[in-house]
Amino acid sequence: MRRNVPVILTTVTAVIVFFSIVLFKTADVWPGRFDRMQQFMAAVMMFMGMANMTRVHGNVVLKKDRNWIFSAWLLLVMYVYAIFGMSVGNTNDTYRWFYNAFIPPVNATMYSMVAFYLTSASYKAFRARTVDAALMMACAVWVMISNVPIGDKLWGSESWLGGMAGVRDWIVSIPNSAVSRGISVGSTLGAFATQLRILLGLERRHLGQG
């Protein structure tokens, strides 16, 4: 029962959606209904996520595992903020202030630190050890310089080959796009194969089965 029902549900749903769209061109009937169901499920999943967080971090707190205080803090913040939000509504100024006063500065700080790591990493890791590495380094330096106004100063976009920016655009739109599309086609084929395996009931790992 536990093994077969989810597989049957998945296959039946996939077959209905596939035939509705491909054969009968009626994407708004059954696929539309499934979309609405999924919207509801997305809201339910939020609660399941909370329940799972409570289970995982609750165990850490109860067992007083390493760094349990952070788990306790996470649960406290999650529940206080969720309950507060549900009681006052998401348009409440205080509710919004908490979000805007904490998340953007923390996010910005984290992201800004990347610039420092990048600077240090470029010094330590960007070495022309091989021809491939040298080529990659040359492209990176070219794109970096041509992306800022100083690139125009060095070799203006009105001059031969469109200047630094012209060469950059060629690198980005031709070799880069070709490789990027190749990766996309490959990953889409992989995703399609996985979806086909799920549809046929061959892939069960997402159901917690091997």
């Binding site: 600077t119 470029s122 010094y123 960007f126 070495r127 022309a128 380094m137 330096v141 310089i145 100083i150």
Partner: peptide, 12 residues
């Protein structure tokens, strides 16, 4: 960006 390029050159 100039600094990063200079550092790459110096590192090499």
């Amino acid at each position: 960006h100039l600094l990063v390029v200079a550092l790459i050159a110096l590192g090499n």
